[in-house]
Structure formats: C-alpha cells, structure tokens
Design a protein around this nucleic acid. Structure first.
Lengths: 203, 203
DNA sequence: GTCTATATTTCGATAGAC
DNA sequence: GTCTATCGAAATATAGAC
C-alpha cells in the first residue's frame, strides 16, 4: 500500500528548492544555513531532511531542476522550422535568465562548488553537454541549408557560442551595472558575422 | 639611516608571492594555510608577516604584481605600428597565460574571492579597466584606418573581445581537457569576422 | 592546540490520511 | 493499524577564537 502521492512529494521538494535558491544566490552555499532554508520554506529541520539527505542535495536539486526545465524548452526551440531561426531562439533561451537578478550569482556559485563536488560537476557538465549538442546540431543543419558557413567545425563553433552566452552570466555576476539584456543585440551581431560569413576572407 | 634596500625588500616579497601563487592556484585561497606558504617560500611565519600583514595581502599581491606586469606589456603591444596588428598582439598577450596550468584556476579563485573582498575587487576591476581602455583605443584607431567596422561602438566591442578572452580561462578552469592554445585560431577568426565586417549585412 | 560557538544532521514522538 | 508528514530537541561535526 502506498500512501505517498508522488506529485505532492515532488511539489514539496520544489517548494524547498525555490526557497533555498534565493538564499544560495544572495548568500552563497556555505553561508546559507539549513535553519535559514527551513525558515524560508516554512518548515522544521526534521521535515526538510525528510525530503533531502543533506544541504548539498538541496543545492544540487536547484541545478537538476533547472536542467530538466531547460532540456524541455530546448526541445521546443530546436523543433522550429528554420534552423537559423531555431539557433537564434536557442541562444535567446539560454541567455534570457542572465537578466534575472538571481541567475548570475547562482551560476558563479555553482562553478565554485562544482570544483569540490563531483556530483554537482556531473550535473553541470551534463547540462552543458545537452546545450552543446543542441547548438551543434542546429549549426550543422544551418550549414546544410547554406545559412551557416560550412567551413566551420560545428562542435568548435557551438562551444564558442555557449562561451559567449556564459560570459553574460559571469559579467553580470561581477558587475552589478552590467545589463545582459542590452548586450543581446551585439551578441546576435557577433553570431551572425561569425557563423554566416561566407568562405572568402579578406586578411 | 636606512637599513632596508628597497629593491631587496621587493624581491623578497616577490619570492613569497611566487611561492604562494602555486599554492593558491592548486588549493584555492582558504585551503592554503600560511604555514604552507612559509614552507614553500622557505621562511618562518615571523618573517613572512614582516613582509605581509596577513594571508589576504599575499593573495592580493599576486594580482597586483600581475597587473603591473601586464600593464607594462600592454604599453609595448599598444605602440605597434598597425592598429589591427596591435589589436591582435594585445589579444594574444591577454590570452597567452590561459595556456599555463596555474593561470585559469587562479583567475577563477580571484573572481570568487573578489565577491567578498572589495580591495581585491578594486584591483581586478582596475586591471580590467586598463585592458578595456587599451582594446577600445585600438579598435577606435583601427576603425579610423578602415580596418575595423566604424559602425561598431568601440567600448561595447572591446567588452566583448575581453569577454571572449576571459572565456578561455573559465573554460580551461572547468575542463582539464580544454586546450586554450588550440582555440586561438578560432578566436582570431571570430574577432576578424566580428570587427572587420563591412557596413552591409545580409539578414 | 584546546575550547567555544555555530551549523548540520539524526532521532523519537505526534497527528492525520487512507 | 500502517504509513507519511511534520516537529523540535538532542547529538555530531565543523569552524573560529584564543
């Protein structure tokens, strides 16, 4: 007999993760106490540890949830008709959260913690691998339709596209005056010139 | 009467900084103890604290020294005849250390610590401002000679150039298999296409 | 290096759903 | 009656001060 409703259980975990996300982003992982998470989530320590084995697991769940979310939306964007338009949509999708105040510090914190936590490292690199595969596939498609320079290595180019998107997060994290949204037009311009350029180059 | 030879004092500080750099890069700031720094530098704690007030000051000195170093070499590269060649040289100069094993983790560590240490933050942003000014000036010059698209905003473009260089460090820090040196040709290609593109764009 | 303060995690109990 | 969510206090671990 199972009396636990999986959906409810999942929702409860999500509630905890949402509360913890704010704290992790503003105070960092170590400086956030489980007591604070409990208070933010409106529950006791005993209850919190009923859902997660330890604090690290809560942190991990932040990025697992995000990965699931993103993977789903990537499939959407990927399925768009025109490969070049799909690529631009994917880039927008990946870049958009950089404008939210919590995302950049959270990304920084994740990079730091990934250094010390192989499990987190695994989640992040899986997430990155999915993004890379999506972007590379679209570049390949767009090259096939002549919308992207066929001379480019799709995997190498995809890495650079992702690196540029990532720099929106690192820049925003370091400098509060940096506005990622304002950089999107320039990012699109760079991508356009880099990827669509024809085979002939003037040195 | 002065009993300290300033040059000798400076050299001794440099020696400590060099020894500490290796430790900071491999173990991170917090996990490096002052005792380890003493041992690596071959001196007693009393002697070390004669040169630096605390561990944080040693860490700070790593980046101050680097800034001085870089500023000097930036002047060199900046003075090259052709603005476009000068720009490429500056980029190479800034990108080159990414290939050294210690630099990427050290850069990461600096970014993390800058979050919590306004003094370090100041050193890093000053360093960044100098790089930005140099690159922007060269872009302006190259635009004037028609080697760079005059439609670009030099400051905005310079920020993106630096962001791309920085991504060599972050990528190398995260993934041991990533080889910054191999990415240099692609980086140059991106810069070339982004910056040199004429005014007409095919959408 | 010891000791204190603070944070994390475990434990046993209670109350309600099925 | 069994199973689960919840609580709050107790025990363990960790970190910081002296």
């Amino acid at each position: 007999m199972r009396t636990v409703d999986p959906a409810k259980h999942q929702a409860r975990k999500r509630h905890i993760v949402d509360a913890a996300t704010v704290l992790f982003a503003t105070k960092g992982f170590e400086r956030t106490t489980t007591a604070e998470i409990c208070k933010a989530a409106g529950m006791s320590a005993g209850n919190l540890f009923h859902y997660f084995p330890n604090k690290r697991a809560v942190f991990l769940a932040v990025f697992e949830d995000d990965r699931d979310d993103k993977a789903e939306r990537l499939v959407q964007a990927q399925s768009a008709e025109d490969p070049w338009q799909a690529l631009l949509e994917v880039v927008d999708l990946l870049a958009a959260p950089a404008a939210e105040p919590l995302a950049p510090p959270l990304v920084m914190e994740a990079m730091v913690q990934a250094y010390r936590d192989p499990e987190l490292e695994a989640v992040l690199s899986r997430s990155n691998a999915e993004e890379h595969a999506t972007v590379a596939a679209l570049i390949r498609k767009a090259a096939a339709t002549g919308q992207v320079d066929p001379g480019l290595d799709p995997d190498g180019a995809a890495s650079w596209v992702l690196a540029m998107v990532a720099s929106l997060y690192t820049s925003a994290a370091g400098d509060p005056a940096f506005k990622p949204a304002e950089q999107l037009p320039t990012l699109r311009l760079i991508l356009q010139r880099f990827l669509r350029a024809g085979p002939k180059e003037s040195s």
